[in-house]
């Protein structure tokens, strides 16, 4: 199990190359999206580090999943995650994506995105500010370089658990 999760030395060399070009798919819903757009605009020029947004999840490396994710939107988000080619990473942004935030009591909003897709880095805040999102991207870059950002492997190893959670939500049997 441990061997499956930890990257080898050779893979870490490849990971260094991967961190030089990180393409982001924006999976942020609701008010979190505004700060997300703010973080990725040209004022902060993340393109100089090879970070840019793409609109086809098949080409993306990182998904920033955040905001208040409704049960209706969840299958679309999971489809987008599954169509990303491996290795793929997820940043969960905002209080709503962590525990439902102010929508905790709302039956239409999921309580945690980590129950459905493996998350590498979590950012709190309502909504998280742009500088924290940028810091999280650099932190993720460091983790990838060290070979420690391997949460995507859990999606294959624990696929049953993730799929059970999804089917529970879609059938209405979810807390």
């Amino acid at each position: 199990m441990k061997n499956l999760l930890i990257d080898t030395t050779f893979k870490r060399v490849l990971n260094f190359l991967r961190t030089r070009s990180m393409w982001i798919y924006n999976g942020v819903f609701g008010c979190g999206c505004a700060e997300m757009m703010n973080a990725l605009n040209n004022v902060y020029a993340l393109e100089r580090y090879g970070i840019k947004t793409v609109f086809d999840p098949a080409k993306a490396d990182i998904m920033i999943a955040g905001g208040a994710i409704s049960i209706k939107a969840l299958p679309l988000l999971i489809d987008a995650y599954e169509s990303m080619a491996e290795p793929r990473w997820v940043i969960s942004a905002g209080a709503c994506a962590i525990n439902g935030g102010i929508f905790t009591a709302n039956g239409c909003i999921i309580s945690s995105i980590a129950d459905f897709i493996p998350v590498d880095i979590t950012i709190d805040g309502c909504p998280p500010s742009f500088d924290v999102i940028i810091e999280a991207l650099f932190k993720l870059s460091q983790l990838i370089e060290k070979g420690e950002a391997v949460a995507y492997k859990r999606y294959i190893l624990d696929n049953d658990w993730y799929k059970t959670n999804l089917s529970r939500v879609l059938e209405g049997d979810y807390e």
């Binding site: 490849l14 190359l17 030089r20 070009s21 100089r48 090879g50 491996e86 290795p87």
Partner: peptide
């Protein structure tokens, strides 16, 4: 804009080839 470094295309291509 600041823009990407001019060698960015090489990293992009290498990254795309490294993906499954």
């Amino acid at each position: 804009r600041y823009g990407p470094p001019f060698w960015q295309e090489f990293f992009d291509i290498i990254k795309l080839f490294l993906k499954r």
